[in-house]
């Protein structure tokens, strides 16, 4: 849980455009603006949740932060080091501290490698250990993710989705990282298994002091695990706030629609709540709408929304929103207290 205001990772004006090529000579005809000017700070020890619809740029942002993609422009600082300015080898070294857990537990593990080799791979790559040391560390890591250390010699196909995701977590932890990008680590898993993995991630965070950027489109799970939540739409962050604030006092019309679309496992809820149904689909990030990107689906859009891109403004301490229809003067701070906080 978040208990510091010390910034661990700072994302500054980050852009990641993918070129679109056409024709036989592969001329560039445009670009997919997957991440388009994002600034965020991740505090030491916190979980920052990142939500938004499919294709809005969550994975791209996570990968660009780790420099798995070379950003089009902007900066990413880990502690005080600007990762975008580092040489490739120095960047690679930084990956000891920054790791990623992937969305698909089936595709992300090499089927021909044993569990020992998968988990030990980062140690070999960084020359951090060898032979027996790796064996010992792998056993320790397997225990940490609550798998039987005897599994070390087995292969991925012998495991269920939840177990594979644990193996992925163990691999990410091999070099004792401080920061982990969790890219939808539970969406491919069954409900009864999701809770197992989420509890594990929470325990590891508490015991090892980890910092998470937690990507998901399941908003109820994101709220459960996060300290703060950032909402993305078409490559930009439209709202950022404390986990309770964003659920009880959401200000951006997109956040409100997303929240109202969450299926709630309680039939009585549907008798008393009217849902906001958004019209249409998300526009293409290759050709996003001018001004506010949400305006084509926004229930409260006005002509001015097409003119300028709304900036992410802090309207209440710690609560940022990018919408010109939100008037800071009228916004009220609703005190929400965690009643059963751990």
């Amino acid at each position: 849980m978040n208990n510091s205001n010390e910034v661990l990772v700072k994302i500054e004006d980050l852009k990641m455009y993918f070129p679109i090529y056409r024709g036989v000579i592969r001329r560039q005809v445009g670009s997919v603006r997957a991440v388009d000017d994002v600034s965020l700070e991740v505090y030491k020890g916190e979980t920052l949740g990142l939500v938004g619809e499919s294709g809005c740029g969550k994975t791209t942002l996570g990968r660009t932060v780790l420099q798995l993609y070379k950003p089009t422009s902007g900066h990413v600082y880990y502690e005080d080091v600007d990762l975008t300015k580092l040489k490739p080898e120095a960047q690679r070294q930084m990956r000891k501290y920054m790791q990623m857990i992937f969305q698909d537990p089936y595709a992300s593990l090499n089927p021909r490698m044993s569990v020992r080799d998968i988990i030990g791979d980062p140690m070999v790559a960084f020359g951090a250990a060898s032979g027996k040391q790796i064996d010992d560390r792998v056993r320790e890591l397997l225990q940490l993710v609550r798998l039987d250390p005897e599994y070390a010699n087995r292969y991925p196909h012998e495991f269920s989705g939840g177990q594979r995701q644990r193996i992925g977590v163990a691999r990410a932890l091999a070099m004792n990282p401080s920061f982990i990008v969790c890219d939808e680590p539970i969406s491919a898993l069954d409900v009864s298994i999701q809770a197992q993995v989420v509890n594990l991630l929470e325990d590891l965070q508490r015991d090892l002091g980890l910092t998470y950027l937690f990507i998901a489109h399941d908003l109820s799970m994101v709220r459960h695990i996060s300290d703060r939540v950032a909402v993305m739409y078409l490559g930009v962050v439209v709202e950022l706030s404390d986990r309770n604030e964003i659920y009880y006092n959401s200000l951006h019309p997109y956040t409100k629609a997303l929240l109202s679309a969450i299926p709630v496992p309680d039939p009585a809820y549907y008798e008393t709540h009217q849902r906001i149904i958004l019209e249409g689909d998300v526009p293409s990030p290759a050709n996003p709408p001018s001004g506010c990107r949400f305006r084509t689906r926004c229930p409260i859009a006005i002509d001015e929304c097409a003119l300028e891109r709304p900036e992410l403004r802090e309207v209440i301490p710690g609560h940022f929103v990018a919408c010109i229809r939100v008037n800071p003067e009228e916004v009220q701070h609703k005190e929400v207290i965690d009643q059963e906080s751990l």
């Binding site: 409900v191 009864s192 999701q194 809770a195 197992q196 989420v198 509890n199 929470e202 908003l219 109820s220 799970m221 709220r223 459960h224 309770n244 659920y247 969450i262 709630v264 496992p265 809820y269 929400v336 207290i337 965690d338 009643q339 059963e340 906080s341 751990l342």
Partner: peptide, 18 residues
Amino acid sequence: LNSLPQIQARGRKRLYSI
């Protein structure tokens, strides 16, 4: 049902897991 996070709940409890 218990393993789902409660969107309306104000607090944060550990998830029940099967």
